[in-house]
Amino acid sequence: MTMYIVIIIDMYNSQMMKTLDSFSKMMPDLMNAVGMTSGTHTLIGFMVSYLYGFILLVFPMIFSIIRANSLIAKYTDNRAMALFLTGGHKRKSIVIT
């Protein structure tokens, strides 16, 4: 996380903030959906809108998808999933448990 914050600080420039503001004026709903707000021309404002508005939502979501896939894949690889499914259990109940 520290490395990512340093990269964000390095990415900051005022010209990019003007570009993000123009995107926000053209597509306000899309920018608000990902947590990017307009009117932040300082480094702190950039970090808040970019790091906390978007990235901290995306990283846990990607981690959860990868982890859930690996939990299901290990039962599929050793053919235990076929045994679970032939036992009369629904797929949804297997995935949830």
Rank of each mutant, 00 (worst) to 15 (best):
Y4C: 12
Y4V: 07
I5G: 01
I5S: 08
I5D: 09
V6W: 10
I7E: 06
I8P: 00
I8V: 14
D10K: 06
M11S: 13
M11V: 15
Y12S: 03
N13W: 08
S14V: 12
S14Y: 11
Q15V: 09
Q15F: 03
M16I: 06
M16C: 13
M17I: 05
M17V: 05
K18M: 13
K18R: 10
T19V: 15
L20K: 00
L20Y: 10
D21M: 10
D21A: 12
S24D: 14
S24T: 02
K25W: 12
M26K: 07
M27L: 15
P28C: 10
L30S: 08
M31W: 00
A33L: 06
V34W: 04
G35M: 05
M36P: 00
T37R: 03
T37A: 13
T37G: 08
S38L: 11
S38T: 04
S38H: 09
S38R: 05
T40H: 04
H41A: 15
T42Y: 03
L43I: 14
L43E: 02
G45V: 02
M47Q: 01
M47G: 04
M47D: 01
Y52F: 08
G53P: 00
F54N: 00
F54M: 14
L56V: 03
L57S: 07
L57P: 01
L57M: 11
F59Q: 01
F59V: 02
P60K: 01
P60E: 04
P60F: 01
M61H: 10
I62V: 15
I62D: 07
I62F: 02
S64R: 07
I66L: 11
I66P: 00
I66Y: 09
R67V: 12
A68S: 10
N69Y: 15
S70L: 15
S70Q: 15
S70M: 09
I72W: 13
I72Q: 10
A73Q: 10
K74N: 06
K74L: 14
T76F: 09
T76D: 02
T76K: 06
D77R: 04
N78M: 15
M81D: 02
L83G: 02
L83A: 07
F84K: 00
F84M: 08
F84A: 02
L85A: 10
T86M: 05
G88F: 09
H89A: 03
H89D: 14
H89S: 12
K90M: 05
K90R: 10
R91S: 13
